[in-house]
Design a protein around this nucleic acid. Structure first.
Lengths: 399, 399
DNA sequence: GGCATTATGTTCCAGGGCGAAACAAACCCT
DNA sequence: AGGGTTTGTTTCGCCCTGGAACATAATGCC
């Protein structure tokens, strides 16, 4: 049902009412698991009669499950605790160093997982995607036969045309104009499409949502995914801004210094040239494939090259992020990937820089946080996005 | 009625259905004036019966008017053309060189207007706002007594706390921590609040909407308001991105060169230092208050200082806008204010620069446009915003 | 242990809003 | 003048929700 500001021009009818409230009911149960029917009614303002009707429908469809009572008993008739149901989604991720396949349930729990380390820089797409398909097949085959897969997504470190299902360009993988779906088609249940997504956009979802429909640590933040390149996403009111074509978030190519070194993107002085993994390791006199933790350790031990590398990165991040915060007024920054592991080393200079360069810093000081040490957050985010479709319109999944 | 992704957790009921469809009906009439009841039904997918019921209600409330037939007669029973109704909104604007008061009707027509030129840089707020109140009183008193004012807004060139009704800082006016409402309270009908807004945000609305509810030239674009400072706004799907506190759009303080000149904001190398009005005129060896048209004329005549000034500005705009476009994927830029008058001079170098620096330019080339020569677009935008409240929920205005 | 209390979940009915279809109205075209 | 066509209106039934009463299952107190 369209919001008042929405561009949608569809008239609402009785069935729309049903659809909307069904979705709201499911979101409410996901937002606060172990809610009772009465809790749903209270949270939504609906009558208990209506909430119960809707919950019953969701239970019948398997989207919500009733569990035996686990709550400390209070006065009155005991409630029937409700939890998100059993549907599953598959999240996949291809990274320069890791292939991941992960199955989540609607409650956000990892039901099955398989990872494979390797070096996929400039690897053959067919080979790499076939190996990923193997991982996916392994965990899908091991699932109980009665569990339904409602969606599948693939997180990729590059620019994606989601509607067409094409990876346009992933510089670090060395791939371009690639259609990954055929390699995975046989693994997926018939009729299920593979949705592509940018790794940073999808990883950002895991910060916005702790589980499908459940609020995460922040609703408004900038997410930075530091790998070899630097991807990013702006999240406002829990929604990842996709931009006009879904190509938003390329913060790695924001210009930090027009007189700076040339970037392979064709521009000069891109953030990536200062805070990307290769730039960091080179400046710190470490091998290109060194672990971020090693860099952090050396800096903590006082290694001058390491400290200088982090100083350069913090300065560049400050310039680039200040620009974004000035334009978007999103003063919360979450660092993921290798940058996330360097948060503590980057924070002092970075927060200081932002305080100077962000116009509204005097009223609200920008903050820097780490996304934590989650492996292949993009895969989890890809599954979350599949569940978001269910949460937006559960009616389509009632059959 | 909340959209599926919305954070709103209100259950929808029958009355919500009514409210939503009433709003949709009004928006449809505004989007395509001279629609008939049958047109509304066709556009929304509602039955003719429902569309007619809703239109009747809006007509009774005065939000929609029936006009005598003006359409070329076709076969069949002639339609009853509908147009947006008579409610009025007041838009005000304080600028460094101009005070504006403007009354619009729901169709977007200017019903009354008063402007006063002057120099309000570092002027006394009480004096300036009292003069603005005088302008407003003049045009409001001259309106027919039966026409109802449904809202009033004030566009200001600075950072605004809209909820509190406080102008936090307007550097070019020299104002800070100011509450303008008291100066205008006596002018407004009792019970009507004055909503503040950033000038660029509101001016951007006039690009997104040709009239309240009617689509404008673009739905996704970056708006730049070039005055002494440079304000801006990012518009996505017709909505101005406000950011977490409504302080978004400060593109004038995006860093173009960290080694550049100090800006009064505390940062260095801000866009404003290269493409702001003072910077432009200084570089062109023109007086600070020269007209942008003069600069354009000199550049066209081959004046080297003028051409160099424009070259510097175009370069700086290219760096700053490329960063924003990389992050937001909004490849359409609309230049307003004095920058708008220089569009033709800036375009070649600017578009070239964006093509090099924007990562997705190879798939979609960024474009530059002029907002045209509208005077005090912020005042119009302030009135548009007031009407947006009506369009979002006409039920509240039925009485 | 029995009973009052309390909260949950269910059932029944009424009201509001929309859609479908029939009907009325007003015009064009031949 | 009459048929055809489109708009606007009316009537009726269906669907969804709310409200109130009822049934249920626990606690707490005596």
């Amino acid at each position: 049902m369209p919001g008042p500001e929405s561009a949608s021009r569809e008239g609402a009818r009785q069935s729309t009412l049903r659809t909307t409230n069904l979705a709201l009911t499911l979101r409410t149960v996901c937002a606060v698991p172990l809610s009772s029917r009465a809790d749903v009614a209270a949270a939504t303002g609906m009558s208990r009669a209506t909430a119960a009707r809707l919950v019953d429908e969701l239970v019948a469809a398997g989207l919500v499950n009733e569990v035996g009572r686990v709550l400390p008993a209070r006065r009155g008739r005991p409630a029937t605790p409700l939890v998100p149901g059993s549907p599953l989604a598959l999240g996949l991720q291809v990274d320069v160093g890791l292939l991941t396949a992960r199955v989540l349930d609607l409650g956000g729990r990892v039901v099955a997982e398989a990872v494979e380390e390797g070096t996929f820089v400039a690897g053959d797409p067919a080979d790499t995607l076939t190996r990923l398909a193997g991982l996916a097949a392994g965990i899908l085959d091991a699932l109980p036969a009665d569990r339904r897969l409602i969606g599948a997504g693939l997180a990729l470190p590059g620019i994606v045309d989601e509607a067409a299902g094409v990876l346009l360009r992933a510089p670090n993988l060395g791939w371009s104009d690639l259609r990954p779906a055929p390699f995975l088609r046989d693994v997926l249940p018939p009729g299920l499409d593979l949705r592509l997504g940018n790794e940073a956009d999808l990883a950002a979802r895991t910060v916005a949502e702790a589980a499908p429909g459940r609020l995460g640590a922040h609703r408004d933040f900038l997410y930075l995914s530091g790998q070899i390149g630097i991807g990013g996403a702006a999240v406002l009111d829990g929604r990842v801004m996709a931009g006009r074509s879904g190509w938003a978030g390329e913060i790695g190519h924001v210009c930090v210094d027009p007189a700076g070194p040339a970037c392979r993107c064709g521009s000069t002085g891109c953030l990536e040239q200062y805070a990307g993994r290769h730039a960091l390791m080179t400046a710190a006199a470490l091998p290109l494939d060194a672990a971020p933790g090693e860099l952090a350790a050396r800096a903590a031990a006082g290694d001058p090259a390491a400290r200088r590398a982090l100083g350069i990165a913090a300065h560049a991040l400050g310039v680039a992020l200040a620009g974004v915060i000035n334009v978007l007024d999103i003063p919360t920054v979450v660092l993921g990937g290798s940058l996330g592991e360097l948060t503590e080393q980057l924070r002092p200079e970075l927060e200081d820089s932002l305080s100077r360069r962000v116009l509204s810093a005097r009223w609200r000081r920008p903050t820097i946080e780490s996304a934590g040490r989650a492996v292949a957050a993009g895969a989890t985010g890809a599954a979350f996005r599949a569940f978001a479709d269910v949460l937006a319109n559960p009616s389509r999944y009632l059959g």
